[in-house]
Simulated scan of single mutants.
Amino acid sequence: MIDNEISKLRNDIDKIDEEIVRLLKTRIELVKKIGEIKHKEKLPVADENRENEKLNNLVMLANELSIPTQMINNIYREIFKWSKVFQISACKRNVAIIGTGKMAFTLASLIAYGGHHVIISHIYEEEAEKLAKSLNLEYKKLKDLRDSIDIAILAVSPQALDNENFIKSLEVLKHKIVMDILSVKHGNYEKIKELSKLYDFIYISTHPLFGPSHLPVGERIAIIDNPDISEEIKNDVISFWRGLGLTPVLIDREYHDKLMATIQVIPHFMLLSMKNAIERILKELNIDLRKDCFTTNFRQIYDILNKLEDIRQVLFEIQFENPYSTLARKISLEEINKMYLTLNSQVKNP
C-alpha cells in the first residue's frame, strides 16, 4: 500500500521534472534570441543589474510560497550562468592559444565555444598537439601560424619569457594582436612590450580574473590600459572578450599589481599556510581528518585549499614576482601575530 502511494507520487514528480526540462528548453530559445539582438547591437552578454533584479523578485516569490530562498538563489545562479553561455555569438576570428596548461585549456574551450577558429600551438609541440586533440581543435607548429591567425594569446608562465627558443618563435606574430594572461605585470609587461617592438606585433596585456574552470562566462578579465594602442584596437579587444560572455575591466598596470597583492598574494599566502597548519596539527594530535565531521564552513574552505593545491606552482610564481608581495606577507604575519597574542592572553590551553 505504502509502496503504491510512493510510486504514484514519484510518477507525479517525474511528470513535473519533464515539464521543467521542456520549459528550460523554451527559456533557452528565448535567451538565444536575446543573444542575437545583443550581438547585432554590440551589447555585452552579461547584464548584472538585470540578473540581480530578477533574482530579488524570485527570492520574494519564494518567500511568499515558503520555498527556501537559498535553493532558489543556487538554482537561478546556475541558470543565469548557462543563459550567458547560450547568448555567446561571435564574429569568427582565428585565434592561436600558445600554451598547454590549465588556463590554455580553459580559454581554448571558451573561445572555441564562442564560434571562433582556435589553433593550439607551443614550442613544446607534443604537449600542444595532445591538448589540441583533447579539445578536438587544430594544432599547428609555431612557425606555421604566420598566415593562419588574427589573435594570439600567450597562455604561458613567466619563465617562457626567458626561453630563447620561445622568444624567437614569436617573430611569426608580426602585425597580429598578441595578449598575455600573466597574473603579475611588473617586469613581464616590459619584456613583452620590447618583443612587440622587435617583432612588430600589437601587444595588449590581459589578466583573466578567474582560474581554470569550465566556460567561465560572467567572469571578469582585466585589460591593462596601454596609451600606445589605438582606441580602435582597444575596443576590438574589449568586444572580443565581451562576445565570449566575459566582462572586461580596463585598469592601470601599477594599480593591477597593487590590487593583485591584495586579492591574490594575501589570500593565497594565508590559505597555503592554513593547509600546512592543518596537516601539522593532525600529526601533533594524532588524528585523521574525517570528512563526515566537517562543518559547512570548513568543508567549503577545504575544497578551496584542494583546488589551490592543483595550481600551487602558479600561486608561488605570483608570490615571487608581484613587487608588493613582500609587503603583503609582512602585513599578513603582523596581523596573525596580533591575533595570536590577543587570543593567547585570554585562552588557557589544556
Rank of each mutant, 00 (worst) to 15 (best):
V237C: 06
F298S: 09
E53Q: 08
H117W: 00
R22H: 10
E317Y: 04
I204L: 09
D228G: 04
M71W: 06
I224L: 14
A277S: 13
S239I: 06
N56K: 03
K258H: 12
L333E: 13
K84W: 02
S213E: 14
K15Y: 10
F201K: 14
N4D: 10
I181E: 08
Q87C: 08
S157K: 13
L61Y: 09
D225C: 03
E126F: 05
I221C: 02
L341G: 01
K176N: 11
Q159Y: 04
D257L: 03
P68M: 11
N49E: 15
A222L: 06
K102R: 15
T247A: 08
L195W: 01
K130P: 00
D257I: 08
N349H: 06
D3A: 11
D236S: 11
H117K: 11
V237S: 05
H256E: 12
E171Y: 00
S134T: 12
T296H: 10
L271Y: 10
P248A: 00
D292A: 14
K54W: 11
D292W: 14
I28D: 14
E53S: 10
I318N: 01
Y324I: 03
D310E: 14
F80W: 06
R253E: 13
C293S: 01
K54E: 14
D200C: 03
D147C: 00
A328P: 05
S196C: 05
I20F: 08
D225R: 10
V178P: 07
I287C: 06
I192M: 04
D288C: 06
N322S: 09
H207M: 13
S7W: 02
L308Q: 14
N344I: 01
A155L: 03
Q264D: 04
C91G: 00
K197Q: 12
K174I: 01
K81H: 15
L315G: 12
N226H: 12
N74D: 15
L55D: 02
T247V: 14
L24N: 14
I233Q: 02
K258F: 11
L308N: 15
S183C: 08
E36P: 01
R329G: 05
G114F: 02
I202Q: 04
D225S: 12
D147P: 00
E78C: 01
N297D: 15
K234W: 04
L61E: 10
A277R: 06
R299C: 06
L315A: 14
P350E: 05
M274C: 11
I153Y: 01
K84A: 03
Q319K: 09
R220L: 00
K42N: 12
S109D: 12
F166V: 05
Y76G: 03
N286E: 10
L341V: 02
A160L: 03
Y199G: 10
E51A: 09
L137M: 09
D147S: 07
K81S: 08
H175F: 09
E194Y: 02
M60H: 13
A152C: 06
I37A: 09
N188G: 12
Q70G: 03
L215A: 09
L289K: 10
L65N: 15
I181V: 15
P208V: 07
T26F: 15
E5R: 15
I79G: 02
A222W: 04
R329H: 09
K141Q: 11
A328L: 07
I224C: 08
T106D: 09
A160I: 03
V85P: 00
S121P: 01
N286Q: 09
L327A: 05
F105T: 13
T106F: 07
H122I: 02
G187N: 07
V265S: 05
